[in-house]
Write a protein that binds this DNA or RNA. Structure first.
Length: 850
RNA sequence: GCCCGGGUGGCGAAAUGGCAGACGCAGCGGACUCAAAAUCCGCCGGGCGCAAGCCCUUGAGAGUUCGAGUCUCUCCUCGGGCACCA
């Protein structure tokens, strides 16, 4: 080894030594017998074509530093890494390249693994996961089956975005201003039959647990918003237009069936009437509202254009208009339709409903600002107190009525805009002058007594659509039999292997590419042996990643998804670090799957991650990194030039880890110089025997250990590094070769950041074992971490007038005496009398002059 | 519109209600060198001053306090998330 700091040489040496001596890997036996298990998890990457991005490396380095720190404290830290290699990203890249993903993805993974080995993280490559491995997705399919058997997976029709040019279904995120993000073609809405997981059944539990899990606050808030709990009431409005749907006619029978299916309320009907006729006026339209207190101001109703009742209540005179409007709405993509800036449009159905509070008949309209997916797909419109309803009422000249009076409003103060603030009720009959908050409850109760309402909670969260009409994912393990209907694939037949398909491109049919492979999907029914076909959709990538953390410890077992004993020992995850971009979907889905598996008896916990911390986002020279800007930082050249240790240290130094930072090429010289001086300072020390720390360095050392320990624990890596720099500067200012006790602890402090350098110096200091094999993190002595003298700040009337060194623990009187003898202090007191003295021990003295 | 974060030197950033600008980058001056690079030493928010020191300064304005970058209110602004969610 040469005298100069040579990162390339050192890093190669230690990476191969770690691997040869199995420093970072556990055997399955190690996992079973570990005494102080600590599961340190980071979000696994999808192995993109471009390779490891500096954003990945930033995330992984910060997480690895935490893991290495816990290991230096003597814990058995399990730090696995894997690949989220299924999904549309990988498939689209394969399409672009014209190479089948089944051939392309393995080479991406290989490239990624190579890069990951170079960043100096302590990954356990004995326990890795690749979601495209049949031995992995076999268990993804198994989880689907468990949900199916528990009644938590169901197939239903749902609207999707369809690009007629690319022949594919698009996620909402892929639709930009109503057009396909790739080709610019306007997107259409199509209805397809899809598999859903009933995550809404878990909405309240997912929300409740957020109060106690130890997660970044912003992430908890994001989940809370996403779940979107609203409290209010469901109120029923009786239709008051007297049309009938007669039994025995085709239309009448179809209507009666719809009524039964959709649980529209039927009341006050004799058996005889039921068998003959359904009167539209016997139907109720349920609406959800968070403002039952404003019901006296509901002057019309609006249904979503797709609402089932529309075709039955529309009058012949309005039918043409209504049909035209419905068609137009159906042709519109979901994104454009949900645009708030769009002008309100709508059509009157000709029908009326009775407001249960005022007993007035109010018109029923349809409009696309009411969404079928939320609530009941119908609203009571209160234009006086809802901005959207106000806009609609103004446009179509519908009555606007004030029913809430804010401070200073009179009963008849006209409304120039919707008022949604606090107030008391007006124009509301017996509820007049009641406070709006109280009235919410009172009116709901009053209507409930008359069977017209009940209190209700609604969630914004939708069921999780897991079907993908694409190729690159795990086939959904379901078989459709002509005789037996929907049959789950028997668990003993798993995995349902994704076949190699030459033409895996999606086409205009909207049907999965697997539907073109007859020899694959046509199979005998596992129950009756009759004609049957496989489900040809694959599942969402988010399902792959919803349980991968359960798989890591058991990654080497093929007969079980997760071994119960290892799971009990290692899970839930102790520390999870990842990007805020997954704050909602991935983190919510994995919480949901964990809860389900717990309810089904497979797990003993229901929250997968004890702690979650988000890391910040890296930008480059003040702007976002993106391929189009051409400013994406690829770590390889930097590591080659500066070494992984310098690169890691720089990434952690450029800003607070949880907030991100601005990457500038020039900035690397700072940490590079630091590590170079570190080397120069410590190499000569190895030739000396032990000697204690001397002078001010001992105090400074203990203070630094405290600072670095606290900062690393709180992921404040930037200030931890600054503290080490300060200490190193102090050692060098001593102007002599340092004593061993002055610098050996510093080698340990820097080890999580620059593990190769630390190992090398540790060895040169005479240690035989890797420093990551023992409990080596230095412990500070609180008594030694403080100085004997303190610099007192003396203020006069709150302004700094002097700094005076005084012994620690000095009394107020003594400090005051010292202060009063200071010339500058005297000058500012200027003969005035000291009216008040503020004394902060060992810190500050403030003399207030009257 | 709603919910989170931010706004501090030329730049990245520090600061349990108690010395604003730690640490680093860039810059300037010096040493070494024939020279350059590397390395080392010094200076480095603005203004006044020979100096001691003084005044100003944390997006804007008010407030609480002996004392505010930090707490409260109002506003401006940037970033992120959600969004006709009834």
């Amino acid at each position: 080894m040469s005298d100069e700091y040579n990162p390339t040489e050192i890093e190669a040496k230690w990476q191969s030594r770690w691997s040869d001596r199995a420093i970072n890997t556990f055997s399955d036996e190690d996992l079973r017998t570990a005494e102080r298990p600590f599961y340190n998890l980071m979000m696994f990457p999808y192995p993109s074509a471009e390779g490891l991005h500096v954003g990945n490396m930033y995330a992984f380095t910060g997480a690895d530093i935490y893991g290495r720190w816990r290991r230096l404290q003597g814990e058995d830290v399990f730090e696995p890494m894997g690949f989220d290699a299924f999904g549309i990203h990988s498939e689209n890249f394969a399409l672009k390249k014209g190479i089948n993903p089944m051939e392309l993805i393995p080479s991406n993974i290989e490239n990624f693994s190579r890069q990951l080995r170079g960043i100096g993280a302590m990954y356990d490559w004995n326990h890795t996961v690749d979601t495209t491995d049949p031995q992995y997705y076999r268990w993804t399919q198994w989880i689907f089956l468990q949900l199916f058997k528990a009644g938590l997976a169901e197939k239903k029709e749902a609207p999707v975005n369809w690009c007629p040019s690319c022949h594919t279904v698009l996620a909402n995120e892929q639709v930009i201003a109503g057009a396909c993000e790739r080709c610019g073609t306007p997107v259409e809405q199509r209805f397809l039959s899809q598999w859903f997981f009933k995550i809404t059944d878990y909405a309240q539990r997912l929300l409740d647990n957020l109060t106690w899990i130890d997660w970044s606050e912003t992430t908890r808030k994001a989940q809370e918003n996403w779940i979107g709990r609203s409290e209010g009431a469901e109120i029923r409005f009786r239709i008051s237009s007297p049309w009938e749907a007669r039994a025995g006619t085709a239309a009448g029978d179809a209507f009666r069936q719809r009524v039964a299916e959709h649980a529209v309320q039927l009341e006050n009907m004799s058996e005889d009437e039921r068998s003959r006729t359904v009167w539209v006026q016997d139907l109720f339209i349920p609406v959800f509202t968070t403002r039952p207190d404003t019901i006296f101001g509901a002057t019309f109703m609006v249904l979503a254009p797709e609402h089932e009742l529309v075709e039955w209540i529309t009058t012949p005179a309005q039918r043409g208009l209504v049909e035209a409007y419905r068609e137009q709405a159906a042709g519109m993509d979901l994104v454009t339709r949900k645009k708030a800036e769009k002008d309100k449009t709508g059509v009157f159905t000709g029908a009326y409903a009775r407001n249960p509070a005022t007993e007035e008949d109010i018109p029923i309209w349809i409009a696309d600002y009411v969404l079928m997916e939320y609530g009941t797909g119908a609203i009571m419109a209160v234009p006086g107190h809802d901005e959207r309803d106000f806009e609609f009422a103004t446009r179509f000249e519908l009555p606007i009525r004030r029913v809430i009076a804010g401070p200073g409003d009179r009963v008849d103060t006209p409304l120039g805009q919707a008022y949604d603030g606090d107030g008391t009720l007006v124009n509301s009959g017996r509820f007049d002058s009641r406070d709006w908050q109280t009235a919410k409850r009172d009116i709901t109760e009053w209507l409930a007594q008359r069977q017209s309402a009940e209190a209700r909670v609604n969630y914004r969260l939708h069921d999780w659509c897991i079907s993908r009409q694409r190729y690159w994912g795990p086939p959904i393990p379901i078989i459709y039999c002509d005789q037996c209907g929907t049959v789950p694939v028997p668990e003993s037949d798993l995995p349902v292997v994704l076949p190699y398909v030459e033409n895996y491109k999606p086409d205009e049919s909207g049907i999965s590419p697997l539907a073109r492979v007859e020899e694959w999907y046509r199979i005998p029914c596992p129950q009756c042996g009759g004609h049957a076909r496989r489900e040809t959709d694959v599942s969402d990538t988010f399902l792959d990643s919803a349980w991968y953390f359960l798989r890591y410890p058991s990654a080497r077992f093929n007969d079980v998804a997760f071994d119960p004993e290892l799971t009990r020992k290692w899970l839930p995850v102790d520390m999870y670090i990842g990007g805020e971009e997954h704050a909602v979907l991935h983190l919510l889905y994995s919480r949901f799957i964990t809860m389900v598996l717990k309810d089904l008896g497979y797990l003993e916990f229901e929250e997968p991650y004890k702690r979650f911390r988000k890391h910040g986002l890296l930008i480059k020279e003040g702007s976002k990194m993106s391929k189009s800007r051409g400013n994406v930082v690829i770590p390889d050249q930097y590591i080659e030039k500066w070494g992984a240790d310098t690169f890691r240290t720089y990434l952690m130094f450029l800003g607070p880890y949880q907030e991100g930072g601005d990457f500038r090429d020039q900035g690397l010289t700072g940490p590079a110089g630091f590590l170079g001086r570190f080397w120069d300072t410590i190499v000569p020390v190895s030739e000396l025997g032990t000697a204690p720390a001397t002078g001010g360095l001992e105090q400074k050392l203990h203070a630094t250990i405290k600072k670095v320990t606290d900062d690393v624990a709180g992921l404040r890596y930037n200030t931890a590094i600054a503290a080490m720099m300060e200490y190193l500067n102090a050692v060098r200012e001593a102007g002599r070769t340092a004593n061993r006790d002055e610098v050996e602890p510093l080698v340990l402090l820097v080890a999580p950041f620059a593990p190769h350098l630390a190992e090398e110096l540790w060895e040169q200091l005479g240690h035989k074992e890797s420093l990551f094999t023992g409990k080596h993190w230095p412990i500070y002595d609180p008594d030694k971490a403080i100085t004997d003298t303190v610099e007192f700040v003396v203020q006069v009337n709150g302004k700094l007038r002097a700094r005076i060194a005084m012994p620690r623990g000095i009394s107020q009187d003594a400090a005051q005496a010292a202060a009063l003898s200071d010339e500058n202090v005297r000058r500012f007191i200027n003969g005035g009398s000291v009216r008040k003295v503020v004394f902060v021990p060992d810190r500050l003295l403030n003399l207030v002059i009257g």
